[in-house]
Design a protein around this nucleic acid. Structure first.
Lengths: 234, 234
DNA sequence: GGGGTATGTGTCAGATTGACGCAAAGTATC
DNA sequence: GATACTTTGCGTCAATCTGACACATACCCC
């Protein structure tokens, strides 16, 4: 809590650290469907012990700043994104996760419908790139843990919420919708059964128009709710 | 992340705070079944802006300390408990949650099978007491939020894990097991259907002996796994 | 206009769920 | 010592849901 925060205790006085307190950071695992795969956005560290290695964009939380705001700010600074879906995941506090200092990091997951919306990397990082979640390079700090955690959370939330709305454009065909699920869950879905359950739960609403392509035109759908809803089952 | 932690940025230099960084604390919502109710353990704050009010036991994380260890330490200091089930819940970082300073608090949930196992409050707090989760007094800081979050998590995890093992003694009757579920979920359960699904999923193992009472003796059960397992469904 | 391909709907058996009744095994009472 | 009472323990049955599967439709392309 915060009940004993005012006076430093013996513990906060005891170390050789310049400031005998852990620091607070946020790191964001940004997901998008790109190229028919589930991908995350990594940045290349310019300095620090992980220099040259890849990591999720993040940084220190400022005094007076909300955690969500810090995550939003860091995400915008490194990708230009605004208004992405954002959700706190888990807080990683192992003092050895950063060899320089004890940094407690609050991990976030962000979702966007279009990977192309990220703009080129900022001055803070050397580079920025999308990677398939199944083929990540070696990551700095404990970011592999974060990646694993984020993927797990995304998978599970796909099954009991309408979170997919944050990964799809406003209008989409049912095939695209189904592909998203199949892709992230990593298993094939029976088109007919899947359609039945999704439509039964009223997660989507059918739009009056269709999309024309090389074959039979596909009905377009959009989400009944553009904010997170919990649903019965899949 | 931690990638930019080494040098203070303009933000960390800018405020009037003695240390221009948020502090890190842990707070633990301790649950037990007591008196036929789901209760949590509250401590009365001795000092600070919430003086005289009730809160969950917690305190600052020390440099070099794991978050889990900090939660364990604070819990032990204020209740004498060791070895309770412990799980990280969520991190609360609103800078206004503590009027004195920006304290980011990592909330934990702890479970024990016997409320009597907590020993009298330590010097840190004026008092310690079990409260029904449905009848909490006004809490300090944002601890009502934590309480709500913890209850929600406990309810939901009861439905898809064997987490109940942490709230029950080693041996118990099926009636006790069922009462736990009914209590926490807040709805009556059909004895026969509930038994069927629980036994079908192999969550419990039946012990050879029974417990004798004023009526028909009840078979005793214990958990097949004394560590957290995820299960199909309830 | 016929072939090709992706879309859209329906059926059916097996499994699961929810509602419910009744026998069994003790103690307490008369 | 038989009877009442209470809690435990098991079984059935209909309604619903789930998983496997087949076929018709609608467009483009040649």
């Amino acid at each position: 809590m915060a009940g004993t925060a005012a006076r430093p205790t013996e513990a906060t006085r005891s170390t050789g650290e310049k400031l005998a307190r852990p620091m607070v950071a946020v790191d964001t695992v940004l997901f998008a469907i790109n190229d028919g795969r589930l991908q995350t956005y990594l940045v290349e560290l310019r300095r620090g012990p992980g220099r040259g290695r890849w990591a999720f964009p993040g940084g220190l939380v400022r005094v007076g700043e909300l955690l969500d705001d810090a995550a939003r700010r860091e995400l915008q600074d490194s990708t230009g994104l605004r208004g992405a879906y954002l959700e706190q995941l888990f807080t990683f506090g192992d003092p050895s996760r950063d060899p320089r200092a004890h940094v407690v990091s609050v991990a976030y997951m962000a979702l966007i419908p279009d990977a192309q919306a990220v703009s080129a990397s900022c001055e803070k990082y050397a580079n920025g790139k999308w990677y398939e979640v199944t083929r990540l390079p070696q990551l700095a700090y404990d970011h592999s843990l974060m990646a694993a955690y984020a993927v797990k959370r995304l998978k599970s939330k796909l099954e009991y919420t309408n979170i997919a709305y944050a990964l799809l454009p406003r209008e989409f065909t049912f095939a695209e919708f189904e592909e998203l699920y199949s892709l992230i869950l990593g298993r094939p879905l029976d088109r007919r059964n899947f359609r039945r359950s999704i439509l039964a739960m009223g997660m989507l609403k059918r739009l009056p128009h269709t999309r024309r392509g090389p074959h039979r035109p596909a009905a377009l759908y959009s989400f009944a709710n553009q904010s997170l809803r919990f649903i019965e089952m899949l």
